[in-house]
Design a binder for these strands. Structure first.
Lengths: 338, 338
DNA sequence: CTGTTAGCGCCTTCAA
DNA sequence: TTGAAGGCGCTAACAG
């Protein structure tokens, strides 16, 4: 199969080869043959001719004609910048391919002007739709250029709630985290690590609410919150300082795996054993959780699934009515719970 | 600026607005005005008309006409799958945009058939060139479809060495690693952790060679190699077992940051202090290095730069002669060295 | 059931 | 220095 001749095979060539008109070929190859009631025999002949010649439609010509490129654009802030979250790209890309589309990506690195330029470029290229993704679950202001176009938000929400969005079910995740602590027999002395006061990050707030809701069911509540940025260093510092005051928790719910790593370090330094003295659970379910000793129990963010669902939503005819999809966060067990 | 009318602004509209022919507009907007000796006054008038109307060329039409899409395709195995290496995407995407191109990505997840299909799709979409990237530095067999097209390899080499490639300078990195150990006063008792016997990964081999070369300069040599897969668990197991035999190293060169993490765990368990008892250095320079306590000194893989250089190389007119580019691996200091 | 025809918006040869 | 005309490959009215 496939011609070795120089020029590309066109629809015209196929038509000639099959002894029909280009129109007929177009109809058949675009699956409109039944509608046009073209004889099965002709259909077969045309398909074979196309195969024999190794015909592949010229997408540029199709695009010019149909104003559709079978391409979707993904705009993000830092999604590919070396984080676990880059799995969203994998999911989106795979889902796009499953729908006969290709994924065009662009990172803005937080620069608004760049963002506009990037979106313009994609519009020029005729992308059929946009996925607007953020690294951290947050509420965002969607660029004006996108708000009236086929767009799905990934891992974020717009203030006006006018666009469909795909996010993890953080609240449920919070409930799960509290639940596994309860199952481990920890009802009191349960602290949260990582809350940020200025959080316009939705995740923290919603997880906290979930934790509270679950504890409330057993008439318990969080013993306290250790406030720190969501990273290893800050978590270590904050937890160490806190332990230095003589605090002795039963369980710690960390708002992400990096925080948990800092917590592990602080606990180790204070001579406290995980899970013997303190049970730990966190959010992310990243590879890091598996690297820690003992393995960290964590509530996973299903990044790949999020990316895939965003693309699937975008492909729906009724995409605009999709609303907000919340994907559940599976519990990944680990030795950090008794 | 930008029209609020429904229909898109075409070259024709601009011509009418400026009172010239479409040809003239095309020449001016494509920078061929000097060649055509068009009056400056006309040029200015046309540009202003284009601005006023918010004209943006129709890329599909341009593509159909010129057989170029201002788009480059990046084919990879697992590059976006949640690894530090996904920074290659960031670098490539940014560089592409700097050259008025957009980046189309596709992951094959190691599936050869998918790879072919993906490349076909990209060819159909008329990408102007390919970047073929791999997660692990390795020697690969480049798909036939690419070997005769504008393609640059990223983080890999093809057996026939016929395509340009961009990789880290692993050998030099190895030299650096050995060098910092020497500077820390460690000449004997220096071990390597992570070598794989079956490695078709180039990185390990080349790093090892670099280490040997540097040590050779001071008439020293590696005391031994602790063999394990490049991950936390295996490194912990192997190192623990080895320490259990009573071995007491002066310094450990780990083949990546994850290995170093496993080594840290094993050393801690054996009651050995870093860097007091054992100095450690590794390769990657990932975030993980900064998370460990003490901070891990590491030889960085400049992923973003690699991605960017691959794209830049691809954009050169003489791309085919670019040969193999080796980007140096900067040393990122840390407290794991005395 | 199938072919003819007319563009989609742009670039570029040729003529003026 | 500028304009007219043709065609890139494909789709979709509109005729037969």
């Amino acid at each position: 199969v496939g011609s070795t001749t120089g020029r590309r095979v066109t629809l015209h060539d196929v038509a000639k080869e099959a002894g029909v008109s280009p129109t007929t070929v177009s109809y058949i190859l675009n699956g409109r043959s039944s509608q046009m009631r073209i004889s099965l025999e002709t259909q077969e002949r045309v398909r074979q001719a196309a195969d024999r010649l190794g015909y592949r439609p010229n997408r540029s010509a199709q695009s010019l004609r149909t104003a559709s490129t079978q391409t979707i654009g993904l705009i993000s802030d830092f999604v590919a910048s070396g984080h676990y979250a880059s799995r969203m790209l994998t999911g989106a890309s795979t889902a796009a391919r499953g729908n006969d589309h290709l994924l065009v990506i662009g990172e803005t690195e937080g620069d608004t002007d760049q963002q506009v330029a990037l979106i313009d470029e994609m519009i020029d290229r005729g992308v059929d739709g946009f996925v607007y993704a953020t690294l951290a679950t947050a509420e965002v202001v969607v660029p004006e250029l996108l708000s009236r176009r086929r767009t799905v938000l990934l891992n974020c929400l717009d203030r006006s709630h006018s666009l469909p969005a795909v996010l993890p079910n953080e609240f449920e995740g919070g409930r799960t985290a509290a639940g596994v602590m309860l199952e481990a027999g920890i009802v009191a002395g349960l602290y949260l690590v990582g809350e940020e006061p200025t959080a316009d990050s939705l995740a923290g707030r919603e997880r906290l609410e979930g934790v509270r809701a679950r504890l409330d069911e057993v008439h318990s509540e969080i013993a306290g919150v250790i406030d720190c940025a969501w990273d290893v260093g800050p978590a270590f510092e904050a937890t160490s300082a806190w332990l230095g005051t003589g605090a002795r928790p039963q369980g710690l719910i960390c708002l992400n795996d990096r925080v948990a790593m800092g917590v592990y370090q602080a606990l180790a330094e204070a001579g406290l054993d995980v899970p013997g003295d303190v049970a730990v659970v966190s959010f992310d379910g990243s590879e890091l959780a598996g690297w820690l000793r003992p393995k960290l129990a964590s509530i996973e963010i299903p990044y790949a699934d999020l990316g895939a669902l965003a693309v699937h939503t975008l492909m729906q005819d009724d995409w605009a009515d999709a609303g907000i999809s919340r994907l559940s966060m599976p519990f990944v067990p680990g030795g950090s719970l008794r």
